[in-house]
Design a protein around this nucleic acid. Structure first.
Length: 279
DNA sequence: ATATGGCCCTGGTTGC
DNA sequence: TGCAACCAGGGCCATA
């Protein structure tokens, strides 16, 4: 579910209420999606939340652990929402929905809860202050300059859809926003990165940033599971132009939207606006 | 380097 | 109504 705009929305919601809060305790349900469950129970009680930020599709919690004094350490808590992960703060006495597997009790009577039907999400903790996984990720699509974007795409012979989805190239893009960006830029998902022309790269760069920024403004896309940190659905699904619109008319040219598999994922495009590469 | 398919899991939808 | 097949905002791994 959650791509950059959804994660950004959740991060903003949590950053507004969590900094300064202390974690009192951790309760766990199923733990097969947690790298080291015991480490959570060991490191988190007593830790104070400094900041919540986004890195690609990861939520990063900067924590200060240990008593104010000698043995205080900075701890990083990483949460990836996978397809169906939800993070919400609620009053501690609120009933927990099905598939809620992590409960962080806070010092203000509330709880931060992680719910994930499919458990494709991941939770990792780093008590040494640095998280290796974050270093391997590619450019943030919203921070990259046009020159950086062009350089990252132009050097590659992979299909543009695969490049946009590859977190080692661009961190945060997912299936929805990749298709929406390609449609806006009028670029077929199977085009080879290195074969894109300058004008196409420029259009794609702008389309990608526009789509992501508009989606953030709409608080993300809610297809089925996604809700923000307050449990509210997003609204950008109302503005999708191709995603899951197979057989419907293109908003630009009225041709019928098609669905094909690219990079192993359903890919929606307009066969008239987005010309297929010659094979 | 790039592409493909299986796998991880649960649940909703579609079609027979 | 039942039931199987297919699909889903992600990502990792093995294989070619």
């Amino acid at each position: 579910m959650p791509e950059l705009p959804e994660v950004e929305t959740v991060v903003r919601g949590l950053q507004a209420v969590l900094p300064g809060r202390r974690i009192l305790g951790v309760r766990l349900g199923k733990t097969d999606f947690i790298d080291d469950p015991a480490a959570l129970e060991r490191e988190l009680p007593g830790a104070r939340i400094q900041r919540v930020r986004r890195h690609g599709k990861f939520l990063v919690f900067d924590l200060e652990s240990g008593e104010a004094g000698a043995n205080r350490r900075s701890v990083l808590l990483l949460i990836h929402l996978g397809m169906t992960g939800q993070l919400m703060t609620v009053p501690a006495e609120a009933p927990a929905p099905l598939h809620t597997h992590v409960f962080f009790s806070l010092d203000d009577g509330r709880e931060l809860r992680y719910t994930d039907v499919r458990r494709f999400g991941r939770i990792r903790i780093f008590s040494n202050g640095q998280a290796d996984v974050l270093g391997g990720l590619g450019l943030d699509p919203l921070e990259a300059s046009e020159a950086e974007f062009v350089a990252a795409v132009h050097a590659r012979r992979a299909q543009i859809k695969a490049l946009l989805l590859d977190q080692h190239v661009f961190r945060g893009m997912g299936n929805i926003y990749t298709d929406e960006s390609l449609w806006r830029a009028r670029v077929h998902p199977r085009r080879i990165g290195a074969n894109l022309r300058r004008v196409e790269l420029r259009r794609l760069y702008r389309a990608m940033q526009d789509v992501l920024n508009e989606a953030i403004r709409s608080r993300g896309s809610s297809i089925s599971d996604y809700v923000d940190a307050e449990g509210q659905r997003g609204e950008f699904q109302l503005k999708h132009r191709v995603y899951q619109r197979e057989g419907k008319r293109c908003f630009r040219c009225k041709a019928k939207i098609r669905r094909i598999i690219v990079a192993g994922r359903s890919s929606y495009f307009c066969p008239r606006c987005q010309r297929a590469p010659r094979v």
